[in-house]
Write a protein that binds this DNA or RNA. Structure first.
Length: 1047
RNA sequence: GGGCCCAUAGCUCAGCUUGGUUAGAGCGCUUCCCUGAUAAGGAAGAGGUCGAUGGUUCAAGUCCAUCUGGGCCCA
């Protein structure tokens, strides 16, 4: 059974039949259920984790389609952005923007376009292979001219609302890529690093203080020594208490809260007396330090009018020294605080991350590298109080892993903070799966919303459609047509990318100057967040269609998209349409390797998705993603887990199907021949169908609630019921070609196949074609064109009765196992005690009797106390509800009673009343307040569980012994038939010889039965050697020889 | 420093919303059974202080608090 091979056949079938297109055509005009495909970035090879999100993005559209909706599934590709540029740079061996400029922006962008096309092919292959039905022919490409014009249109709406502005701000910046990063990009790139952290002395120059203490310094802690070059001020918290500490001949100003951290506890851990090593000389509040002058540590660049203490509320005394070094060019907080004192912003770092060449000591050095040089210099000059490595997470560029620099630069922003309240209202209305994201991770994110840094100083992206003249007049265009009109030239066919768009100038509509496009492109996250309308080329195309598709009923991606796509979708939707673009969002956990580690090329633990699917089957991988563990949680995926799914689910299902088709063919039987009406079919059949119908309604409810895990569990349980109870119990009827059995199994497989189809589209399609389509050509030509099975026929009473029968069967097996009497040996009787047992239909009791190979199953008669022992336990659930605090007293009282007497009283009178000491009221006990276990007191084999018990009479009478022997003989002969290579329907003639009287008696009394079982037309004794294929006593543990001949 | 999630059998995970006295499944292990789906199937057994501590309650794996460890996200 090669599932990979089977799937390739099914893929070929879908391809030739155009099944996906047929499904879309068939549902045309039905109510829409909308889904947006989050575009994968086409910058690398897809991984196994891509199967996860794509499995979820496939199952719900398939399910909704079966439920009668029309689900448009447009694929999309995220084409722009730094990742693509970086891949191309690497290919071309470039090391920065200068190389790109030299190479030519036009040529470079052409390479980017090429790279995108290449990687999209790899994603398309994965998509097809895993059976993700999404329309790739009509895919949206964010680099498409029409797509870009939609993006422009939306930016113009935002600009007109006054929410797209240019501002100077400190924001994270990648010196390697030469661009600022937005906050959601920042979120992608935190890495744990060890930085040098230094405690530096800043000698106080202010006379008032300096004259009181020798060698007085402000003590400052920083993890970014390179910013010390730009030190402009030192901030203290105005409300905190600071002090002067005398230590080893030096004096330091630090926050009082941190004195012990810095100089040690008064009594050290080793008992040493630190108090003698330092002394607090005086204390004062932070306010008193304001404008105290100091000597900065490096005198390398000119920073006029500065170097004194300022006050800032954001300073804490939790770590460091309580004095914070300020470099306004490199910290958002620093910039705000220093601006308040009119301090200058001096930036010695070039856009490529190196110190300006004319800077002494560190000129030309990369900022991070300068840490060592500067620390060494501080040490030499005796300004270093202490240094220690500091491990923390620091933002890095999410693509090139260069440490980011917080850097003051001009940038375009979308003022999302002004619509924060609207966003929070929209979030309220959104259904998150799992729900905690809504208030937790995502809610927090919205609460702490900052303006969206939209612009990038890069090349391969949607150009910002803003033209600016020398008078700073801004003109925003929404289309090439508008731009052409303004420019007075026909540019409808212009590639809107750089550098072509940069060449278009317009006369400023507001003055006499010429306006040029601003140089920036936009954050590619804006592209993907704009997909609800840009994919439709709205508003220039598909005006009506878009409105029916907005907002989406459902989006789904992994959890890292909370601040990525989920945010940009909601933000742009709210900005442009005043409504979030999705109603429900499923948020998946990440996929880890078998040892719980992230998959990464670096660790070499990556599972290659296509070969994984070819090895185990895409169905198995999909099932794992959808139904194994909690989708919201990170999960470990490996070969073992997937192989288990194949064996436990897919092969069991497949074997059951094979079983049915084997006997349907040999009967022969087809659905056209029909079957007896349901009420005339045996109880097993009625039960199986009621189970199947419950399954369809329960899986329906689970998928309605996006709970693929529950649906999967229900299907697994049903397959187990089907194979290991129904087929096991009903096998004989299939040998006889019983149309009721064949038809029942056929119907049950039909239903479960439909329920499984959205999970495992391949194997169910194969079964649909081979088992259903072949005999019922009137059915839809694909399982994926069929409707969800209608629920009917659910018989709860029958389900409960069967559940009881199966529990009793388990008890019976258990009793047999403890008795060491083989199941093959028939036994005479068993006694059963279980609530509801006496009400079971006789045919159900007969099933249990046959399964256990016991002649009679009798109800244990409680009144016969000589035979039965009763034990009782209080039922706390019912007692607790009534007696509360006094429950233990009542329970103890019940436990003291004579069990048999109490049960008999309750069974006759219904209730018993007690007066119990310490219990205020009269206590009335009912049967329901007890858990009763009845067991026979004779030495039978007994098994009991949860108040139900089973007692097996082990006596083997002469007749039972003969019957047992007959079964042994049948088994030996069946084994012989198989060894002789006979077909299951071959008729035979059997000869036997034996000296054993027991054997002879068995054959004379059970011969007809034996012959029937082994399809023997004759069963005759011979003297001497048997004829035909021999079954010898020496091998079969039966003191007889048999010979089998085909007739 | 903040937020969220997780911690249950050797392993992978259910159960917790709605508290009830014998905590389940699959895999693995041991023993046995069955065999006309058969390189399948079934039963039994061993294996758990439900991360720790405290609290609420007649009763806590389940509710609350604190802590520890792990993960993710943010500063």
């Amino acid at each position: 059974m090669d599932l990979g091979d089977l799937e390739h056949q099914v893929l070929a079938l879908w391809e030739t039949e155009g099944t996906f297109a047929a499904s879309m055509a068939q549902s045309q005009g039905r109510p829409a259920w909308t889904f947006y495909e989050g575009p994968p970035t086409a910058n690398g090879a897809p991984g196994t984790h891509h199967i996860e999100a794509r499995a979820f993005k496939d199952i719900f559209p398939r399910y909704r389609t079966m439920k009668g909706y029309h689900v448009v599934r447009q694929a999309g590709w995220d084409c722009h952005g730094l990742p693509v540029e970086l891949a191309v740079e690497k290919e071309l061996g470039f090391s920065g923007k200068q190389d790109i400029e030299k190479y030519g922006v036009g040529k470079f962008n052409a390479k980017c376009r090429e790279s995108v096309m290449r990687h999209v092919d790899a994603f398309a292959d994965l998509t097809t292979r895993m059976g993700y039905w999404v329309d790739m022919d009509s895919a949206y490409w964010t680099m498409d001219t029409n797509y870009i014009q939609s993006v422009w249109w939306s930016l113009k709406q935002i600009f007109n609302a006054g929410l797209l502005v240019q501002d100077h701000r400190v924001s994270p910046y990648c010196p390697r890529c030469g661009t600022g990063l937005s906050d959601h990009e920042l979120a992608q790139g935190y890495e744990d690093v060890v930085d040098p952290s230094v405690y530096v002395r800043f000698p106080v120059t202010a006379e008032t203080l300096a004259s009181k203490y020798s060698h007085l310094s402000l003590l400052v802690w920083t993890t970014t020594p390179w910013t010390l070059v730009s030190n402009t001020a030192i901030a203290v918290k105005p409300s905190a208490t600071y002090c002067v500490v005398s230590h080893e001949g030096q004096h330091y100003v630090v926050a009082q809260d941190l004195v012990e951290d810095l100089f040690g506890a008064p009594i050290g851990a080793d008992g040493e007396d630190n108090i003698t090593r330092y002394q607090i000389m005086e204390t004062f509040s932070g306010v008193e330090l304001e404008r105290v002058g100091y000597q900065r540590p490096f005198d390398l660049i000119d920073i006029p009018q500065s170097h004194f203490v300022i006050l800032a509320d954001y300073v804490t005394t939790d770590d460091g020294t309580g004095l914070v070094h300020q470099a306004p060019a490199f910290g958002a907080d620093d910039l705000i605080s220093c601006r308040a004192y009119g301090l200058p912003v001096v930036n010695p770092i070039a856009p490529d991350g190196t110190f300006m060449p004319d800077t002494p000591l560190v000129g030309g050095q990369f900022f991070k590298k300068a840490d060592t040089t500067l620390t060494d210099d501080l040490r030499t000059r005796g300004l270093l109080f202490r240094e220690k490595p500091y491990e923390h997470s620091y933002p890095h560029c999410w693509r090139c892993h260069t440490p980011l620099i917080y850097y003051a630069q001009p940038s375009w922003y979308i003022k999302t903070t002004t619509i924060k309240d609207r966003l929070m209202t929209e979030n309220e209305k959104t259904h998150w799966y799992p729900e905690t994201i809504k208030w937790g991770r995502y809610g927090d994110w919205l609460t702490n919303n900052v303006d969206w840094a939209l612009s990038r100083n890069r090349y391969w992206g949607t150009p910002l459609p803003i033209w600016r003249c020398e008078n700073e007049h801004l003109t925003v265009v929404e289309s090439l047509a508008e731009l052409g009109e303004l420019a007075g030239q026909k540019i409808d066919d212009l590639d809107p990318h750089r550098p072509f768009i940069d060449d278009i100038t317009i006369p400023c509509p507001q003055c006499e100057y010429t306006a040029n496009r601003v140089p920036e492109v936009i954050d590619c996250w804006y592209d993907s967040g704009a997909m609800p309308f840009a994919s439709q080329w709205y508003p220039r195309h598909n005006f009506d269609e878009f409105l029916t598709q907005y907002p989406a009923d459902f989006v789904c991606e992994a959890i890292d998209q909370t601040r990525g796509w989920f945010y940009t979708l909601m933000a742009i939707g709210t900005l442009v349409f005043d409504e979030s673009s999705y109603k429900s969002v499923v948020c998946l956990g990440h996929i880890l390797d078998e040892d719980g580690r992230k998959m990464s090329k670096h660790l070499g633990n990556v599972l290659e998705p296509i070969s994984l699917m070819d090895q185990h089957g895409a169905d198995a991988v999909r099932w794992f993603m959808l139904a194994s563990g909690s989708p919201w949680q990170s999960r470990r995926v490996g070969h073992t887990a997937i192989a288990d799914i194949v064996r436990k689910n897919l092969l069991t299902y497949w074997n059951t199907v094979s079983f049915l088709s084997l006997y349907a063919r040999s009967a022969p039987w087809t659905p056209a021949e029909g079957a007896p009406p349901l009420e005339q079919r045996p109880i097993m059949d009625r039960w199986l169908l009621t189970q199947a119908h419950s399954l369809s309604s329960q899986v329906d409810a689970a998928l309605e609630d996006f709970d693929t895990q529950l649906g999967g569990r229900l299907i697994t349980e049903f397959i187990d019921d089907l194979s290991n109870w129904y087929v096991r119990r009903t096998r004989r009827r299939f040998w006889d070609g019983d149309p009721a059995a064949l038809s029942t199994l056929h119907e049950a497989i039909h239903i479960v196949t439909l329920c499984m189809a959205p999970y495992t589209p391949f194997i169910t399609e194969r079964v649909w074609q081979d088992l259903f389509r072949e005999t019922q050509p009137q059915l839809p030509p694909s399982v994926h064109l069929a409707s969800w099975p209608e629920e009917s026929l659910v018989d709860a009473q029958l389900q409960e009765q069967m559940a009881l029968a199966r529990r009793v069967t388990e008890l019976g097996r258990s009793a047999r196992a403890t008795s060491s009497v083989k199941t093959r040996q028939p036994l005479g009787r068993a006694l059963i005690s279980a609530r509801g047992w006496s009400g079971l239909p006789a045919d159900l009791v007969a099933e249990v009797a046959e399964e256990l190979n016991v002649g009679e199953l009798l109800t244990l008669d409680v009144s016969d106390s000589a035979l039965v022992s009763i034990s009782i336990k209080p039922n706390f659930r019912s007692l607790g509800a009534r007696f509360g605090k006094q429950t233990p007293l009542v329970a103890a009282h019940i436990a003291m009673q004579d069990a048999t007497e109490l049960v008999n009283m309750l069974r006759t009178a219904g209730t018993v009343v007690y007066e119990i000491e310490w219990v205020d009221e009269t206590v009335t006990i009912e049967l329901a307040d007890l858990v009763i276990t009845e067991t026979p007191i004779q030495g039978w084999a007994v098994a009991a569980d949860a108040g139900e018990s089973f007692a097996l009479d082990l006596e083997i009478t002469h007749d039972l012994a003969l019957a047992g022997m007959a079964r042994d003989i049948v088994r030996a002969l069946q084994e012989g038939r198989k060894n002789a290579g006979l077909q299951i329907s071959d008729r035979v003639s059997v000869t036997w010889s034996s000296d054993n009287a027991h054997i002879a008696e068995t054959i004379s009394t059970h011969g007809v039965e034996i012959a029937h079982e082994v399809l023997a037309l004759a069963l005759s004794q011979v003297i001497g050697p048997v004829t035909g294929f021999p079954v010898l006593g020496s091998e079969s543990e039966i003191e007889a020889n048999f010979g089998i001949e085909k007739v």
